[in-house]
């Protein structure tokens, strides 16, 4: 990963406000392909708004986000895969059908355009590819089960598999492991790490769990307000106050300590 390559994501002077309420202000950042950005911050400091902007379900009030040098599509598209905390998978499709849906939508076959389905050889090929990915996330045995028959951790594995089938340029994770048990969470971390290195993904992950952010990320952003007006707290938006490069795993503890010190200082 050299700095000479053009960044995959460039954020230029990004503002987002709802009426008088400024959520984000003057965000300027760039991210290289293959980085794993963990995003942390207090509730209501604009993390989710930032993710929605990346996803394309909200538009910036000012500034822009460039993907590969081009302005982002103003609606969700295949370049950006997403895994939410819940409701990411389709309850009426089995695991393998959930993963295949991506191919059924985007292949140029007539049946795909008209019915959103594939038939015959195209379907078999799609299924094979879907099974490969399910294998990778450890769900091959559960391929024919419905999401309601899967545990929370398995559902999140499925959601990741489903997001990866379109080979997105960036993968967005919105508190993906927030609802899972600690043990399962460790497994999911291992899986996420594996997939990230293996598939050379660029990942943005929102998390409430600082140590999770440090453990998984190659870079950690802290969203916080830099200016405060006690009379009108909504007048100033948040920005990335800390941008910490991580050599994954190491320096974890000292950074955590430093950050917590900084936090208690500002608070």
């Amino acid at each position: 990963m050299t700095k000479h390559e053009p960044p995959i994501i460039q954020i230029k002077n990004l503002w987002k406000e709802y009426g008088d309420n400024v959520v984000l202000e003057r965000v300027n950042l760039s991210v290289q392909a293959g980085e794993f950005v963990s995003i942390v911050g207090a509730s209501g400091c604009g993390k989710t708004t930032f993710l929605n902007l990346l996803l394309g379900i909200e538009e910036p009030s000012q500034g822009e986000i460039l993907l590969d040098g081009q302005p982002l599509d103003p609606e969700p598209s295949v370049e950006r895969g997403i895994v939410f905390q819940k409701y990411s998978v389709f309850p009426h499709l089995t695991a393998v059908e959930n993963v295949m849906l991506g191919q059924e939508f985007t292949q140029s076959a007539v049946s795909s355009c008209l019915l959103g389905r594939l038939f015959g050889t195209a379907r078999r090929a799609a299924k094979e590819e879907a099974m490969d990915i399910l294998e990778k996330v450890g769900l091959a045995a559960a391929a024919d089960k419905y999401p309601s028959e899967l545990s929370g951790g398995m559902q999140q594995r499925l959601a990741i598999a489903q997001a990866l089938i379109r080979k997105p340029r960036i993968l967005l994770l919105d508190e993906p492991f927030g609802a899972l048990d600690p043990g399962i969470r460790k497994d999911m971390h291992r899986l996420t790490r594996e997939l990230w290195t293996e598939q050379k993904l660029t990942v943005f992950m929102i998390t409430h769990d600082l140590s999770e952010g440090f453990e998984l990320g190659s870079r950690l952003w802290v969203f916080d307000k830099t200016r405060h007006d006690l009379q009108a707290p909504e007048r100033f938006g948040a920005n990335v106050t800390f941008d910490i490069p991580l050599s994954t795993g190491q320096e974890h503890h000292e950074h955590l300590a430093k950050l917590q010190a900084a936090k208690s200082h500002t608070a």
Partner: peptide, 22 residues
């Protein structure tokens, strides 16, 4: 859930396909 519809869009579905399959 809006998450489902967003997810379907990131999988490349157009309006018609999303209505039909999701």
């Amino acid at each position: 859930p809006s998450e489902q519809l967003i997810k379907a869009q990131t999988l490349g579905g157009n309006s018609w396909q999303i209505i039909l399959r999701v």
